[in-house]
């Protein structure tokens, strides 16, 4: 289980490869990459974005989320990377990768970690747009996405092999 909060970019292929290296029991790796979007749902064009975070709390919050996922699904290896600082459209923001025996656990844990990261990890986006700078408002849909896991079974149903 490894969490990084960093300004630097990351190598998606290398991170995915590391998740199953030297572990022949891993049968599935699910991953997610979040990127800076140019448009913001009908608003002005985004030219840059600055991600602020709460040093000290951020890594702890991510570790707590990963631990929670590990209690719900079989997660053999987990990697979370979240960047901060100035980013531009097309830049990678976040990586979540989960290695497990079977895909059901890997898919579910990966999505769970992203949903909880969206509502619990102390990051804030400030967009520079063609119409000026502004702090991004939180979305109700992110809260809804995190809440649905409260009703979900803690273990994936017996998944098909593979």
């Amino acid at each position: 289980m490894s969490v990084s909060v960093q300004a630097d970019d990351f190598d998606v292929g290398a991170e995915i490869a590391k998740l199953s290296r030297d572990d022949p029991d891993v049968g599935a790796v699910a991953s997610f990459v979040g990127l800076v979007r140019r448009g913001n749902d009908g608003g002005a064009e985004v030219t840059a974005m600055t991600l602020e975070h709460y040093p000290g709390m951020t890594e702890r919050a991510l570790q707590d989320i990963v631990a929670e996922a590990g209690g719900r699904w079989q997660c053999d290896h987990v990697r979370v990377i979240h960047r901060f600082g100035m980013l531009r459209p097309g830049d990678r923001i976040v990586f979540v990768g989960v290695a497990s025996r079977h895909r059901g656990d890997a898919f579910a844990a990966c999505e769970f970690i992203m949903d909880f990261l969206k509502t619990r990890a102390p990051f804030w986006k400030r967009e520079e747009t063609t119409a000026g700078a502004r702090w991004v408002e939180a979305r109700d849909s992110d809260d809804t996405a995190a809440l649905r896991w409260d009703a979900a079974p803690h273990r994936a149903a017996e998944p098909p092999m593979g």
């Binding site: 991600l51 923001i93 976040v94 992203m114 102390p122 804030w124 939180a138």
Partner: peptide, 23 residues
């Protein structure tokens, strides 16, 4: 993360912020 009812004591670090928007 803390709810409104959480107790605070000397030496604590308390932070206030808008709903988070990472990811």
């Amino acid at each position: 993360m803390a709810d409104a009812g959480e107790s605070i004591a000397a030496g604590d670090e308390v932070a206030f912020f808008p709903p988070v928007t990472g990811g």
